[in-house]
Design a protein around this nucleic acid. Structure first.
Lengths: 213, 213
DNA sequence: TCTCCTATAACCCGATTGGGTTGTTTTGCT
DNA sequence: AGCAAAACAACCCAATCGGGTTATAGGAGA
């Protein structure tokens, strides 16, 4: 198998050089150009349209265009490049945003060089590496306090809520459930009381955020 | 620190004995009673209300009450026990269901004994261990085909959409952004065209399902 | 049996929304 | 400099929504 091509975007010179030097010692990896900013990387992509890498190590806290903001731009040009985020900021929303944007792995900068290389190997083999603390946060998010939130809604209310989420009008929901639109409205009024919201938008948001049922 | 108390629910005698024998060799772990079915475990909990473990290895494909179905029941009695799922079924929905139910780690049965012990250590330290292939699936789920959907919305439209998602009226959004409600409506009209929806509900649903930005 | 709750249905009324048109101004790109 | 796009603003109008009240029928539980 050909060597796995690696690149890195990291503004801290010391970290960038150390990591890439260590990676380069492993002969299954081929270290490509590295960059100190998202802008310089994107510029390089424009100037060299043929440039590609298999795995990109990406700092989340870059000055200027941040790592997260850059992910979609990178994926646009290099859809087959796997991105490993490197970061000191382990805040939940950052992590989720990065993963949702297309990063496939997430490493704390506290990780050892060996751990970084291990992560690269995992990703090269089609897996996804997560630092334990980060995995834990993702799990927390997925669970989303969903425990012990055993349905407060009646069956009918759930059916109606589903209609709302689908963007249906009262009339359409009534038609679906073979009841009048008046009745639909009546259910919805009670629904709002139970959920402590005042309109469709909030009810839908609550439902889709998984805070119900 | 006291030994970490470990138990296991697994119907396959060979696997159960091998794993627990290996775990027992590590003196930081204390192997407790093990069980061949969810029912016998739950029964044990009822008979011995003081029984507790720190970490429970749980087979997902148990006969009778499955591992996933049992998680909420276990969590009810032992809220502080961390659950590590062991499984051959790596299907996405199984994994997500297990995690959403309260499992904190997920191991493929292909994992080596060393990997299992490593996972236990990680969990005992408050982390969460994921097999690379499973981490990948979770990442896939979180990304949800969201790639190459590089923002179609303008900055202004995003701000407005955020207002909608928060359940605000046009008027309130206008106030927030220092523009008139007419203008807000105008933006929303264009927004709907771009997203190909006809009302707030669908736009919010699209946003919260992560199909935007 | 007699409540309590849910589901059903209807009415009124004001506020909000969605869709249409028509503009001016600013901004970005060529 | 000039064009296109986006942001801004206002008008009309019909449909929808949110909140209030009132009322009947059926099922669960005290």
């Amino acid at each position: 198998m050909a060597a796995v091509k690696i690149s890195m975007i990291e503004d801290n010179n010391v970290i960038r050089k150390n990591v890439m030097k260590f990676v380069a010692r492993h002969e299954e990896f081929e270290v490509m150009e590295v960059f100190a900013s998202m802008e310089s990387f994107l510029h390089h992509l424009n100037v060299h349209p043929d440039f590609s890498v298999d795995i990109l190590l990406l700092d989340i806290g870059l000055p200027g265009l941040s790592g997260i903001e850059g992910i979609p731009l990178i994926k646009e040009k290099l859809p087959n490049t796997d991105i490993i985020m490197l970061t000191t900021y382990e805040e939940e929303h950052m992590i989720l945003k990065a993963i949702c944007s297309g990063a496939c792995s997430y490493l704390s900068k506290k990780s050892s060089l060996d751990e970084i290389v291990e992560a690269i190997r995992v990703v090269a083999n089609g897996g996804s590496y997560m630092s334990p603390s980060i995995a834990r946060e993702i799990v927390q998010y997925l669970m989303g306090g969903k425990l012990q939130k055993t349905t407060i809604l009646t069956e009918r209310q759930k059916e109606i809520l589903n209609g709302l989420v689908d963007g249906k009008t009262y009339k359409a929901i009534g038609k679906d459930l073979y009841i009048s639109q008046h009745t639909v409205k009546c259910h919805i009024k009670k629904l709002y009381q139970v959920l402590q919201v005042n309109n469709k938008a909030e009810a839908i948001a609550m439902y889709l955020r998984g805070e119900i049922e």
